[in-house]
Design a protein around this nucleic acid. Structure first.
Lengths: 339, 339
DNA sequence: AAATAATATGCAAGCGATTGCATGAAATTA
DNA sequence: TAATTTCATGCAATCGCTTGCATATTATTT
């Protein structure tokens, strides 16, 4: 921090007024005459004064900073969400402090601790895949720091949440595949420690049943969706006597990998194999055929989440309800036969 | 900020010691006996004490926060860089404050201003595409805030920079295409307000000459690389009598769009058209054929940049040199004919 | 014109840490 | 044992800004 920086006291001294007057003038308080305001603003300009937010934060017990906690930055959906948050925050005069959990519970806990110390005005978080307990979240509440969760939420925890109907996303996907004549549908799901993926799983099982399609246990996988996980699953599935004729992946990266695998194995999508991704990213449209996917309103989710948070910051804790955002199943060429 | 939070004074009072003793104990100063340290740490635990970093920052004139300023978050390369920064920062006990310029100079200026006010300990930035002046950067220096630039840098400005040899990247790309027998090479470049793109342009022209290939002015484009820009360029180029037989794009998104265009027009890559991208993202490997590209060490760049910055924070301003990071031209199937 | 209200400014106490200096007690040296 | 260090702790100022309350000045009301 600059040692020699100009403070309101310097301005006050030069102008022979009280520091409090300078403070009020610079904050455009209506208790200061326009003449003095002008004088002060000019002098501030002249001296190159720059507000010390740290001091202001301490004195106001408010930092105008929002903590954003996400699993990974390097992910289309999350960066869309952060985009939405950042845009709105910037306009409302808030800064954002970002940290990645990298899906580690330990990191998440540590992050919440340091964000508490930093006295962020509130936190927006998408829980890590291996978050098992909510003790660290309760500590936030105890420290009076409002929290809003999105996407991967913990229904145990009493706070506002913004998410989508994951059950329905899977249901629509399975139904669409069934209507398109696919019979043995497989699912590459995410870790079941996470609400999203358990909702997917449930919907997968129930919708297959409703559509009178078989649920082949081997075709119902749950993993961390790493490149190895995907590749292993493909190896196994496509060396079976009855192979899947459709795959629903929980992540778009997984879908892209499946599409690549299919090309390498000369499996035609969508003729031999249909493909649907439950999340989306632009690359899905750059491959051939383009991949059917669930489009999530990332930016919109970010904005809504921040709106809720700002509301809590200004008006205190609100009801702990869950807002369900709409999604769209965008049908591209990977999920229905042209015939 | 929590109104009712526990302070070191509360701990001091309960234990009948001085606040300074508590502060020293919690900072593990060696001037406090182990017995009192233990007592204090226990009591802190018991009361649920959580350091107020805002107060600590004010009093220490140091926030342990690094500002990160990038054009867009939602971009593979930048998120890699931020990844590298975040990882190292976390380990070193620094937080990161992120802001996007969205390639607007006005926003960049405003961001630098608020980051100064926030008293970040230093700033890492990749300049916006339309940054014309460096006045806002000089203000940082005047405020004693160290700055390190990466990727899109301003050579006018005296500070450490981390970048790659963009001239060489283009040179290698053109040479590779020439050696592979492509004759009319086109370039979809970025805005020339940016050092990167002017370096590309220069190398493009000079290398074509060296390779005794024609420089067709129409094939040397500079734009913002939006979807419309690309699509327009394609329309025009492929309605000419002599069409390009190779395209070098400045962004990977542009490359993916070209690849999509080619597929739609039944142009075979690499037979009818070669394609090289001067930046990289995973999607380049998901399309068919996979796209040759320049791979940049994003995470590495992030780490190095932060290391330089931390060094300046600790030891004061250093020499304003530029560090050139190595890149790799990864040749995939889009840039040489199989024959 | 006296009484009241509105306006503009100053005073001083915070906000919650950190830290240089002083001090008393215990340990070491001569 | 007296003199000198070393060790552990406390005192009080400081970081730069905000804000409730007091006060002086000017404007409005009756």
């Amino acid at each position: 921090m600059a040692k020699s920086s100009i403070t309101i006291n310097d301005i006050a001294r030069e102008l022979k007024v009280a520091p409090s007057t300078v403070s009020r003038a610079l904050n455009n308080s209506n208790k200061i005459s326009n003449a003095t305001k002008r004088k002060i603003v000019e002098k501030a300009e002249e001296l190159g004064y720059n507000l010390n937010m740290v001091a202001a934060s301490l004195s106001r017990s408010q930092t105008n900073t929002i903590g954003v906690v996400i699993p990974y930055l390097n992910n289309y959906f999350y960066s869309q969400v952060v985009n939405g948050i950042e845009e709105l925050a910037f306009n409302k005069g808030y800064r954002i402090l970002i940290a990645q959990t990298r899906d580690s519970f330990a990191r998440e806990t540590e992050i919440m601790r340091t964000m508490s110390a930093t006295r962020v005005d509130g936190i927006i978080a998408c829980l890590s895949a291996d978050t098992q307990s909510t003790e660290h979240l309760f500590k936030l509440i105890k420290n009076n720091i409002p929290l809003v969760l999105f996407d991967r939420v913990s229904f145990d925890f009493p706070c506002k949440k913004v998410t989508i109907d994951n059950y329905n996303a899977m249901q629509q996907s399975v139904t669409h595949l069934a209507r398109s004549g696919y019979k043995s549908i497989a699912h590459l799901g995410g870790p079941t420690t996470c609400n999203i993926y358990t909702e997917h799983s449930k919907a997968f099982r129930e919708t297959l049943k409703k559509e009178k399609l078989p649920l082949i246990p081997q075709f119902h996988l749950s993993s961390d969706l790493t490149e190895e996980d995907i590749s292993e699953a493909m190896q196994i599935w496509f060396s079976l006597k009855t192979k899947p004729d459709a795959i629903i992946t929980a992540s778009s990266t997984a879908a892209l990998l499946v599409s690549k695998f299919a090309r390498e194995q000369n499996l035609s999508i969508p003729d031999d194999l249909a493909l649907i991704s439950l999340t989306s990213e632009p690359a899905l449209c750059y491959v051939e055929p383009q991949i059917t996917s669930i489009e999530l309103p990332g930016t919109e989710i970010g904005k809504t989440t921040l709106e809720f948070l700002l509301n809590e910051i200004q008006n205190g804790a609100q009801n702990a309800n869950t807002t369900i955002k709409p999604f769209q199943l965008i049908i591209r060429n990977s999920s229905f036969r042209n015939s």
